[in-house]
């Protein structure tokens, strides 16, 4: 987060009372938010929270049911192509052209933006380098690994030098190594001042990549702040995780409640929120409570989400 105040920053996306409802359910329930130029803004929430629906409304591929929305000062409902011209969209599932090579996928996508052939050819060199796919340029997409396809989809979205890059669950389904490579690439974009809009249900991803996070659940906003701000506001500095065995967790919980700022009893473990986890563990031992396992860690967004919704992010 920069030191610049929000009031002086250029607003690229502004939503007021944004709503999307279908016949039998409400996917997005009147949410308000602003995204500023050059920031990395994340929608964090479990599957079905309304993150992807919100992204599709912003991307001008889904019409909203109510509320106001402007992107670069225009309403996507009435200016679809004008908005799409300045967005780079990375969908949840890679929708690349399997019959074409890596290079050709970048080329034809550039053509959809009406870009001149010479410009695209130059841009392809940059993007292949960025996506670490130089040696795969002539390989058909179907032969690429999941991580490579993901990087190519991101590179493809950058061919038109978009004002806003939208990434829907960018690392879902990738192995840890592929995730870290991707995070590194997205960090580089952030450094170059590209505005990023990310949906994720991975708290570590949100913490790593986002300047500001909007926590969503069941179509509504639960909280919005920087990762550190959210943790400070909704959790303690440390968390003590203890396991007494699935039968005993609920039995000992009342005794622990008085010792910590707050506790959460999960089926497999108990979370005790405190400023000093080690001191709390020591106190427990002194009172004759000896957990089978114990772990002291710093609070995370998972704890924030648990506090806000009473549920874990990935259930």
């Amino acid at each position: 987060m920069t030191n610049t105040t929000n009031a002086s920053r250029e607003v690229l996306i502004k939503a007021t009372g944004l709503r999307k409802s279908y016949e039998d359910f409400v996917a997005v329930n009147g949410i308000d938010f602003e995204v500023f130029k050059g920031e990395s803004f994340g929608f964090l929430g479990p599957n079905g929270a309304g993150k992807s629906t919100t992204m599709r409304i912003i991307a001008a591929t889904l019409t909203r049911s109510g509320g106001e929305l402007t992107i670069l000062g225009k309403d996507p409902q009435s200016n679809g192509p004008e908005i799409k011209a300045h967005l780079g969209v990375v969908p949840q599932a890679d929708n690349l052209d399997n019959a074409l090579t890596v290079e050709e996928n970048l080329y034809i996508y550039g053509r959809y933006f009406g870009l001149p052939k010479n410009f695209i050819r130059e841009k392809i060199e940059e993007l292949l380098d960025f996506a670490q796919l130089m040696d795969k340029r002539s390989v058909k997409v179907e032969a690429l690994s999941g991580g490579m396809k993901r990087r190519l989809t991101i590179a493809r979205a950058l061919v038109s030098e978009p004002e806003i890059l939208m990434l829907d669950e960018p690392t879902t389904g990738l192995d840890p190594q592929a995730r870290h490579i991707l995070w590194d690439r997205l960090f580089r974009l952030k450094e170059q001042g590209v505005t990023l809009l990310i949906t994720t249900h991975y708290m570590d991803e949100a913490e790593q990549l986002c300047d500001r996070i909007m926590v969503m659940d069941k179509g509504s906003i639960m909280a919005e702040d920087s990762p550190a701000g959210l943790i400070k506001k909704y959790s303690t500095r440390e968390v003590l995780e203890v396991r007494f065995g699935s039968d005993r967790n609920y039995v000992v919980a009342p005794q622990l409640e008085v010792m910590a700022d707050r506790i959460e009893v999960l089926p497999d473990r108990i979370l005790l929120y405190a400023e000093n986890g080690e001191a709390l563990l020591h106190e427990m031992n002194e009172k004759g409570l000896h957990p089978v396992t114990s772990l002291v860690r710093r609070s995370s967004l998972e704890d924030v989400f648990l506090r806000l919704t009473g549920r874990t992010l990935v259930e």
């Binding site: 959809y112 009406g114 410009f119 380098d129 950058l158 038109s160 030098e161 978009p162 004002e163």
Partner: peptide
């Protein structure tokens, strides 16, 4: 050669032209 947005889509994408001949790119 790293990716570097030099001009930005606001300068390089001509929406009016795409509205006329976008089908040809497909």
């Amino acid at each position: 050669m790293a990716y570097k947005p030099r001009q930005g889509s606001l300068k390089i994408v001509d929406v009016a032209q795409i509205s006329r001949v976008g089908a040809l790119s497909v």
